[in-house]
């Protein structure tokens, strides 16, 4: 009887020791399915002033994870107003594509830039203004870099009102965003929420300005 008791106790101890020291997670991580393609760029509000801008395209999965496929994507422009040029890698820069006016800024109009990757597409519509724009109009100014990423600092905005092409005044405009899921605005500060496109709308005395903006994915792990 005592031997059986001891044997049972030892077996119990061995079993407990063997099975209880490690934890086991029920599933191994699996890749999340692709959700969409996102074409992103820096802000376009100053494009009319004869500058080019870079474009990137990301593949987004259902976990909200972004893979940069800029160099692998195919780029298309809807008309001859714009052109897309490859930028060669240099130093830490991995290369990419630049969008610029095909004919300088002598010609105004609307053009669409499209990225195609693995059968998915995303586009942005670009308006090319002449070097001298009409008035009255609003100009939106930013307090810092427009390279917005989730979890980063907020960005202050302000507005300048052009009553005539030669007369301008700083004014307290009102602001709103087209997609609060991507960015929210509180007074005159933009808070990036998640990567994506949104339109910042500034309004003052019946005059409004629409600025296409982007929140780009972070290159760092975002933890509280």
């Amino acid at each position: 009887m005592q031997h059986r008791l001891w044997r049972s106790a030892i077996l119990l101890l061995v079993w407990v020791t063997a099975t209880s020291c490690s934890a086991s997670y029920p599933t191994a991580p699996t890749a999340a399915p692709v959700r969409l393609l996102l074409l992103s760029t820096s802000s376009l509000n100053d494009f009319s002033f004869n500058r080019s801008f870079t474009v990137k395209v990301y593949l987004i999965d259902s976990d909200g994870v972004y893979t940069d496929v800029t160099n692998a994507a195919e780029w298309q422009v809807s008309n001859s107003l714009l052109r897309v040029t490859r930028i060669q890698p240099s130093g830490s820069f991995t290369g990419g594509f630049s969008v610029s006016a095909a004919n300088g800024f002598n010609e105004s109009g609307v053009s669409t830039v499209t990225a195609v990757y693995q059968g998915r597409t995303d586009s942005i519509t670009v308006t090319v203004y002449p070097s001298s724009r009409s008035a009255p109009r609003l100009e939106v100014l930013f307090s810092g870099s427009q390279q917005l990423t989730p979890g980063a600092q907020t960005l202050g905005v302000s507005a300048r009102y052009w009553s005539t092409p030669g007369s301008r005044t700083d004014v307290p405009a009102s602001y709103s965003t087209s997609d609060p899921g991507v960015a929210t605005i509180d007074g005159a500060r933009i808070t990036p929420r998640s990567p994506g496109k949104f339109t910042l709308i500034a309004s003052y005395e019946g005059v409004s300005e629409h600025v296409l903006m982007f929140v780009n994915p972070s290159e760092k792990l975002i933890k509280p």
Binding site: S22, T27, P29, Y58, V65, Y66, T67, S194, L221
Partner: peptide
Amino acid sequence: TTDARGEYIARATTGALGGRHPI
């Protein structure tokens, strides 16, 4: 002895840092 196994998902992040990872 504290043994932990699991996974994390990093969102809104590019590159190898993002996505699902074992712990």
